[in-house]
Design a protein around this nucleic acid. Structure first.
Lengths: 309, 309
DNA sequence: ACGGCTGATACCCGCCGGGTATCAGGCCGT
DNA sequence: ACGGCCTGATACCCGGCGGGTATCAGCCGT
């Protein structure tokens, strides 16, 4: 049996997303008849009906829904393959380091300094990401190394090197009653009247229930924090969010957060190795936040209430 | 920029594997000139040299090695997409249940019986696998549900339902001095003079070091066990290997083995749900091997010395 | 120097992807 | 009820590209 052609997949995804041959054809920059023909041939080749044609457009069959998902991932894999090959072909290319926009600038700064002194290190492009974006960049071949956080980020399939372990603090307005405390617990912090915790979208894009505002970018969050409208639990070193009128109070039972360097093990080039080696050299040189009296939380104990800034 | 075409990837993989345009063309069933042209165009499109042509054939560049790996996985993804779509299109298709050839026939038998009584269940095709083969079948869309074992198998990315927990026993000839013991430890069992533990290939195909014979199929192992040439540590219920002249002795500190039903969460059809529901109905109805005095071993504590039969 | 191996080039043909024009059916508004 | 109009399907033509054969060009070993 013939393979699926990437063109056919592109066409099918367009139709499946538009549910309309004419609009899909326009989006693809071709005319409608060749598109109908291509989809028809695809169905004939697979021996499966993918779309139910209808007077008002088209609807996906069960098989069509399956192929839509599969085709999207297949096209992603293909695009990633092209990018990674191109990047591998250019030996002098800069390494791309993906890091959170609000992550500790101190760690990043020292890392870049250490890399500059490492023999065999390539120049570094720093790519600032929104929360949770690094994994996709790494998997898609758009980044070589990412600075991520455990247990916040999904590190499955990546090689990692721990860089830094720290506790988390709650950030709240100085005038707040809790601001005078020298320690807090998650229970105390999770239900503060008038100061709800902001809700981040889950991996599937939906939001957890709760009273807090929905946010999906760092700048939205920054505004809310600046306005004193939301409470934040973040790693102790991530003070990018901290305004003068805010106070950071340790949350003793929040999970310890480990800052790690992550990379795809299959793309372990000498340049990546040099970068990771430089990162390892930083370990321990950072001031460690003393662990809370409750002790460390086992790995994978679930997400903290807010991602590290 | 144009996408990678699947034909180009097939062609490139052939050349990269043969390292010889003529042989690759023969393997692909086409003539050599179009192949050279296709590879050349691929290189031009990517802007990267993939192969160093040479009087005695071709050798891969760094970028070529990257693309070889990427292209293989991309082609796998494409093939899986086609298979899964075809299977999704046929509502009356039998579900494919992948299970180890030597797994407990009792569990399997009861599972099939339970499924037959489940409303909305499809007919079941049972696919007998070699060790570790199930994960690939599931990922490749060739199976819907697999019976696997934790912590032996790699269950990453699968939905699972625990079916059965049991300890492991050592299988050894009745005449052996250790056969009279009523319990053993891994330390005692791992270094028995004249009765070494067989070595299975790792995921990358290499063999761990050790004195035991190398095996890679269940039938090889069955012969060795029957001959009394190797020692086996297997889940207590997997007695398919046990000849009359063998004795099973509990190994108290071997990891508990959990038999699980596993499936791709993205392919969670009603038929799969019915099968899993039937499997869950079996839980607890099987006789449980009492846990060893050491207690249960934490999950992911590493592989036992031999896979369950 | 030459034969034999490699991959590259030149050229031709037939298929297939893409275009325009048109058809077929169902819905809706009048 | 009927005609416009929207949908996707069909008919037909053209050009480009994939594939074939014939041939060239470098490089070895003898």
């Amino acid at each position: 049996m013939h393979d699926l052609e990437t063109r056919e997949l592109r066409y099918f995804v367009a139709v499946a997303e538009e549910l309309h041959f004419g609009r899909a054809a326009a989006r693809l920059g071709i005319a409608q008849p060749p598109l109908s023909r291509a989809i028809g041939r695809l169905e004939r080749r697979l021996g499966v009906r993918l779309l139910d044609r209808d007077r008002r457009g088209a609807t996906l069959t069960d098989a069509g829904r399956v192929l839509l998902r599969e085709a999207r991932t297949a096209l992603d894999v293909l695009a990633a393959a092209a990018r990674r090959t191109q990047r591998a072909g250019d030996a002098t290319r800069p390494l791309v380091l993906a890091t959170k926009a609000g992550a500790s600038y101190e760690l990043l700064h020292r890392l870049l300094g250490a890399v500059a002194g490492e023999p065999g290190a390539a120049p570094i492009d720093v790519l600032l990401c929104e929360v949770g974006e690094q994994a996709g960049l790494l998997r898609g071949g758009r980044a070589d190394v990412a600075i991520m956080h455990r247990p916040v980020d999904d590190l499955a399939g990546f090689g990692t090197e721990d860089l830094h372990v720290e506790g988390q603090v709650a950030l709240l307005p100085a005038a707040h009653p809790l601001a005078s405390r020298d320690r807090l617990t998650l229970a105390e912090v999770s239900d503060v009247p008038g100061l709800p915790i902001a809700r981040w979208p889950r991996l599937d894009g939906s939001y957890p229930d709760g009273p807090g505002p929905e946010v999906h970018t760092q700048s939205q969050l920054a505004q809310l924090v600046a306005l004193g409208r939301t409470l934040l639990v973040i790693p102790a070193s991530s003070r990018a969010w901290q305004w003068p009128e805010h106070v950071a109070v340790p949350v003793v039972d929040a999970p310890q957060v480990t800052t790690v360097a992550a990379w795809r093990p299959e793309a372990h080039s000498p340049q990546v190795a040099a970068l990771v080696r430089a990162a390892m050299g930083l370990r321990g040189s950072a001031a460690r936040t003393p662990p809370g009296p409750v002790g460390s939380v086992p790995e994978g104990a679930g997400n903290p209430v807010a991602p590290p800034g």
